[in-house]
Design a protein around this nucleic acid. Structure first.
Lengths: 518, 518
DNA sequence: CATCACACGTGACAC
DNA sequence: TGTGTCACGTGTGAT
């Protein structure tokens, strides 16, 4: 698997494309590991192909692409145990996740947003020494997927990263940096014999490479086998640190900064390259930035130790700070994105515009709510005027656990001749549509003599994610000849001897509806 | 007027308090001028008194206070010609603005928010050499206000700031800085005879003063008369610049930075003091920052001119950048504040929390709106049915002579994804019962794919002694796989061949009902 | 060449 | 002791 990381860009792209087609992935993402002190995965390459037809809740496809791009920009610190990063950290050659399992392990909300928007159902993470390969598809997990995928990739030996002991001398370490910096002195020991195959270092080298235009060292494609890599990483880290604190005579023509020594900050974490557009530019930009950051502070002048900072060693301690700050910024930007996504579209994407639009959108919503409630109250009052008795109260009834819920209350004033009833029926079920439900009840009513339908209102709503159908029928019960002696009900409130037996009617309705369920 | 700026804190507060009571102001705000390069007004002191009874749209009073505080934190660059700053720039001793005139000139949205929230109707700005005094009241402008106010303040001679000629030697200038830095050498010419009465310098001095704990120089209350001050300001600016480029031997015990020279960036703009709480702390913090910024870069080592930056003279060009960047940040933060102010209170004030809360608040509002509109329509229909006074009421229900009447209107907000329609069917016929009618329509709907019934309401009534059945169905029309390209369409936005054709649907319903009649 | 908007690294401060 | 949040100055790219 690691060999993927060593391919040239063109071959890699072709391979990813091929892989994607083979497994019908929606997207594919190659995460390369950037070792300590960054210790994170960053995007190396990838593809996203929008589905031509998405069944879930619509929305534009370009949003998913935006989210994908943003996702690719994210850093994923392996120590967090999130995905991506989890497979790499735990040496899992194959890790398959269903949609349900993802939220627990996802690195960011944005990531989840992307999965959701793209309709991803299954994600596969394949760890290797160089990083991770992430495949996502909209289909449900399939039984033979793992085997197929495992067969697809060359069965290279995946060495378990043993927990590194930090004793590696910096002798072999400097070389990798001295390489990346292209200095002349210190061309040490085993440079060729132990090439930096680790993805991270390759990534680092790519940066330096682009910057320095020294393609020679990188261009050659080693056909790998990775030595013990942890030492490699550690070495590289140490190398950087070492050079940073020494007075190197590196010099770099491309930049215009007057000859200066290195900067005290080692690993401003790698670049993110976007596969599609802007990839090169972005990469170059980040590479330049990376390198420039290296040379920013000058520690070189040994005699001038009166520096600005308290200690001129802003090593590891500061580093956490810097990456966590970066994390924070990314979180904020993610939030900005998701916020902007639910604003009325088409406005500027400017940060302050987003905020302003948000405020005015909120206030417009608020006023809308206010207007509506106000109007609502007026209507309600008006209604209760004309149509006294509160019949208008919502179809709620008691929130019982029963699936069927039937209530019958008399609404006509006791003085009145005609007797009006409100029949409330609630049905919680996803199995039947509202219209099925209503038709059923109507069918029953039609059979009933003496009972005329005056009005009906109904709606469905989601309660705890299952639909609840509510139905209120106003019935006019005629005082027809039926004359069924039937004695009523529980309470004292005697409804006087009706030919219309409320309870049995109620029960009948209940049964009619319940039958439909069984 | 300038004398206000020279009062001690206690006297000043008392004076403001008194003034406020006298003119029944809601708030009063003392803006002190910080000269070039900042060239802006910043808050020196002020009061805000909430009205016990606010007639405008309720809301908590504390919101207005929050906005006031935020407003006080703002910087107001005089060159922008906004308020505050306008009166100062144009030497207006009295500038009265009605509410209508304010939006054009207000500096920030936050400011407007405050005015609105506090119910401010009239604002008066009084310029003087030291800055501006801002009075706001909730009453409408009164005819004699200007005279009263002018009488209230001591008629001190207000010198017009002549456009400064930049020739002032830096001799007299260094003193103010050397003063603020508390250095010992260079105690120059006219220090006592020409005390730094300019508000800005006093503000500057306050900073340095707090920082250096040398109260002696400031504590004394001069009873003024202001010399030509422009030279003063300019001098101060030049002084800073001069010191910055020279190798001063200033040293400062309180800070722990090893003795270093000055930084190349002169004017990181003053502090903002809040009168109420946190004032001291914030002020101190800013003061420290101000001073530290002065000493950041060391230009002192003359022999070491190999600096980091391209040119070690980040002078005026960069400076604009710095302040505009600062403006930008402030704008963002203002937006954050006003955004947070209209979120449900009590959550974290954390930036990312604000964003998250905003998103969920928006979606909650949205759902609320949806629920309300739905309920609203139900009520409305209900009302128009039961309460069928002769009205040519809203339901199109044109009292047509037709026996069947079908209407279809879209009710979902245009932003929403799902499309909701209200289908209204009226049937005047004595031949069929309501339930027959309803069942008929339902049967038709059931056949329709893409169309789901959300809610239904219906009734019958007698019109001219024949029954009229009314039926309102809310339908959710699904966006079947069609995947309409959602480029936001300011253009012709043709309703384009939907699988759901409103007109034909309507006609189909009409026919279904009519069939039943024949 | 300006202006604007953004991201970055950094010091300070609060738990 | 870190961990997280913030504002600042700065570099850079777009417009």
């Amino acid at each position: 698997m690691d060999s993927i990381f060593l391919l040239g860009e063109a071959e890699r792209a072709a391979f990813l494309q091929h892989t994607m087609q083979t497994f019908r992935c929606s997207y594919i993402c190659l995460w390369s590991y950037l070792p300590n002190p960054s210790n994170c995965l960053l995007y190396l390459d990838g593809l996203y192909k929008e589905e031509s037809s998405q069944q879930p809740s619509s929305s534009s496809g370009s949003l998913a692409r935006m989210l994908f791009n943003a996702y690719c920009e994210s850093l994923n610190y392996v120590d967090l145990g999130r995905i991506p990063g989890f497979a790499f950290k735990n040496n899992l050659r194959y890790l398959e996740m269903k949609l349900d399992d993802i939220p627990r392990l996802a690195s960011s909300e944005l990531q989840m947003q992307f999965y959701k928007e793209a309709g991803i159902k299954t994600v596969v993470f394949m760890g290797c020494s160089s990083g991770e390969l992430e495949l996502g598809m909209t289909s449900e997990p399939q039984a033979n997927l793992e085997m197929e995928i495992q067969n697809w990739f060359p069965i290279d030996h995946y060495l378990s990263k043993q927990t590194a002991n930090q004793n590696t001398s910096s002798s072999s370490s400097l070389r990798s940096l001295s390489l990346s910096v292209n200095s002349v002195e210190q061309s040490p020991s085993n440079f060729i014999t132990e090439p930096p195959t680790k993805a991270a270092s390759s990534s680092l080298l790519e940066e330096a490479n682009i910057l320095l235009r020294s393609d020679a060292l990188i261009g050659r494609s080693w056909n790998v086998q990775f030595p013990n890599i942890e030492s490699e990483n550690d070495a590289l880290t140490k190398a950087i640190l070492a050079v940073l604190t020494s007075s190197s005579t590196s010099q770099q023509a491309a930049q215009n900064m007057p000859q200066s020594a290195f900067r005290s900050y080692p690993g401003p974490v790698g670049p993110r390259l976007l596969s599609t557009h802007q990839s090169k530019k972005n990469m170059f930009k980040r590479a330049v930035m990376f390198y420039r950051n290296l040379n920013m502070h000058n520690v070189g002048r040994a005699h001038d130790q009166s520096r600005i900072d308290i200690g001129n060693r802003p090593t590891t301690a500061q580093l956490h700070h810097v990456i966590s700050e970066r994390r924070r910024r990314e979180k904020i930007n993610e939030s900005f994105l998701v916020l902007r996504s639910l604003l009325p579209p088409g406005s500027k994407k400017d940060k302050v515009s987003v905020l302003s639009n948000t405020t005015e959108f909120i206030s417009s919503l608020r006023s809308q709510v206010e207007r509506l409630t106000q109007r609502n109250q007026i209507l309600q009052a008006q209604l209760s005027m004309t149509n006294e008795s509160e019949a208008g109260d919502h179809l709620e009834a008691s929130p019982s656990t029963e699936r069927v819920n039937v209530g019958l209350t008399r609404v006509s004033p006791s003085t009145s001749e005609t007797r009006l009833f409100d029949l409330r029926v609630n049905l919680r079920s996803g199995e039947f549509s509202l219209s099925d439900f209503v038709i059923r009840v109507f069918g029953f009513l039609k059979q009933q003599r003496n009972v005329n339908l005056v009005s009906v209102q109904s709606n469905s709503r989601m309660v705890e994610s299952i639909p609840v159908h509510g139905l209120v029928l106003r019935l006019k019960v005629e005082d027809g000849g039926g004359r069924r002696r039937r004695l009523h009900p529980p309470q004292s409130h005697i409804v006087k001897g009706d030919e219309f037996d409320e309870l049995s009617f109620q029960e009948a309705v209940r049964r009619v509806v319940a039958d439909q369920l069984s």
